[in-house]
Design a protein around this nucleic acid. Structure first.
Length: 463
RNA sequence: GGCUCGGUGGCAGAGUGGUUAUGUAGGGGCCUGCAAAGCCUUGCACAGCGGUUCGAUUCCGCUCCGAGCCUCCA
């Protein structure tokens, strides 16, 4: 029996996943700040977590997946002012675009997608608790978390407070008692948006929302808390401090979430993706050029914790691979997907159990694909079963092969015309008039129709 | 400066103390009138230097190089 192992950032090692409550696995992923189009890095987080949740669902009867939308934040305020669009309108627009773009990549909506602005009260209550427990203090309209009081601060990211102060490159705000203290609540002078609170009109600090929303939607403790690797510090470190301190569980960091799951970064053509370099790859743009399934497979072509270097070349390679799988499925269209024990081959599925090793899984699918040429019908049936069932988990190969490959569909020519031309060409071939035959083929190619002569006759597809 | 994580064949990317990763690209061949697809076949690897070992790409140490975080960031 396979056991799921996941890398836990809290402890920094591979651990067997043991659910808190086997009847309901609870997962929280830090979602996007919605002030712009999502880029391929956002997509990696969404796809990896979608895979995690989808795989968990094959093991456990119920999984509750929560991923938030951050809809109040300095960058949003700045974007709203710059574009002169009300914040609500801006965040609604980019939330919708985010969900749409992700769905093209085969990412399902989370079960709950809470918004920060719907949880201001919870954040205020949490802040009150922290003040009450003497882990937070108010100064100049700010409420700050008193980091030195939290002994285990830094455990997640593996750094200690002193080193951090020495290495710090930022000026310390005058209202902070300690350089590492962070904001829970801050003043928000009009026209900036804000809410009434015991500490005056203001808005929450960034880290507070995820502490509030995860507790509200999932209860404490929950199983897995995830996000991009850059969130380890300070965001997740601060979340742990807030939640544990608010509940006086400062000696048990796992009283918040048991497993911390982080995906690696996406680089672009070997460089960090950043606005200054101008190499941000937006999902919205990529979706216009490539099939979502190709992008998804490309995102899963490296292990989720490894950096992924996003280049045109790897998209092309994965596209070719995916097309081959679909050709396999096309060749297998008259074979039923079936396997005696109704189980995915162990050698194939074990990669997923081993910290979601998708490159291993994909490699094993290729091994199966290579066996097709010499397979009998029983074997073919098994291979088809594996392709489809594993594809279901990792989010590929669920389309109709004909549709995916473009067989029998053309945007330019109508079917009758194509069939007539193919017939004329085959007549020409029969008469050994190959010049005419090739001429017809070229003509079709020009109109985006490619033909293949198979032993069952000529078939055509759009390219 | 501190804390992480890496350096595998043209490219991408797993893994392992001794045996083929896998894909893609390239070479050769088969099939085809020719294509396309398919099939067969074939190069090319484990940054460097030490150590442990019968044996290391895999473990340990050092060196070099790269990336991320420490400030908003997926």
């Amino acid at each position: 029996m396979n056991k799921l192992k996941l890398h836990n950032t809290l402890g920094n090692k591979l651990e067997e996943f043991i659910p808190i409550n086997i009847k309901n696995i609870r997962v929280y992923a830090c979602g996007p700040t919605v002030y712009n189009y999502a880029h391929i890095g956002n997509a990696r987080m969404a796809v990896v977590n979608d895979l995690l949740v989808c795989f968990l669902r094959t093991i456990y009867p119920k999984v509750t997946y929560v991923s938030n939308i951050t809809d109040i934040d300095d960058k949003i305020i700045a974007a709203s002012e710059e574009k002169n669009i009300p914040i609500k309108e801006l965040t609604k627009k980019f939330t919708d675009i985010y969900n749409e773009d992700m769905s093209v990549l085969g990412v399902s909506l989370p079960d709950i997608q809470p918004k920060a602005t719907d949880h201001i009260n919870e954040m205020i209550e949490l802040t009150k608790l922290l003040i009450q427990n003497n882990f937070a203090y108010e100064k100049e309209g700010h409420v700050l978390f008193d980091v030195p009081k939290f002994k285990d601060y830094g455990s997640l990211s593996g750094r200690n407070r002193d080193e951090q102060i020495i290495g710090s490159r930022v000026e310390v705000a005058p209202y902070k008692k300690d350089p590492t203290d962070f904001v829970l609540w801050k003043p928000s002078p009009a026209p900036k948006p804000g809410w009434e609170s015991p500490w005056g009109f203001g808005r929450p600090g960034w880290h507070l929302e995820c502490s509030a929303m995860s507790e509200k939607t999932l209860g404490l403790p929950f199983d897995i808390h995830s996000g991009g690797a850059d969130l380890i510090f300070p965001h997740h470190e601060n979340e742990i401090a807030q939640t544990c301190a608010a509940h006086n569980n400062t000696h048990d960091l796992k009283s918040f979430a048991k497993y911390w799951f982080h995906n690696g970064f996406v680089n672009v053509e070997g460089e960090k993706m950043s606005k200054s370099v101008g190499n941000i790859r937006l999902v919205n743009e990529l979706n216009k050029e490539f099939k979502g399934e190709v992008l998804r497979l490309t995102l899963l072509s490296a292990h989720y914790r490894q950096p992924l270097n996003w280049t045109r070349n790897i998209i092309k390679q994965n596209s070719t691979m995916l097309e081959r799988f679909y050709r396999n499925l096309k060749d297998l269209e008259n074979i039923d997907a079936y396997k005696d024990n109704d189980q995915i081959d162990d050698v194939v599925i074990e990669g997923l159990y081993d910290d979601l090793n998708t490159p291993k899984v994909i490699a094993e699918l290729n091994v199966l694909s290579n066996q097709l040429s010499s397979a009998d019908n029983k074997m073919k049936s098994r291979i088809k079963y594996n392709l489809l069932e594993v594809g279901k988990i990792i989010g590929i190969l669920q389309n109709n092969p004909d549709t995916w490959l473009g067989y029998g569909k053309s945007a330019i020519l109508d079917e009758t015309t194509i069939e007539r031309l193919i017939k004329e060409r085959n007549e020409a071939r029969g008469n050994k008039n190959f010049d005419l035959a090739d001429q017809i083929r070229d003509e079709l190619k020009e109109k985006g129709v490619e033909i293949e002569d198979t032993k069952n006759g000529t078939i055509w597809k759009s390219v």
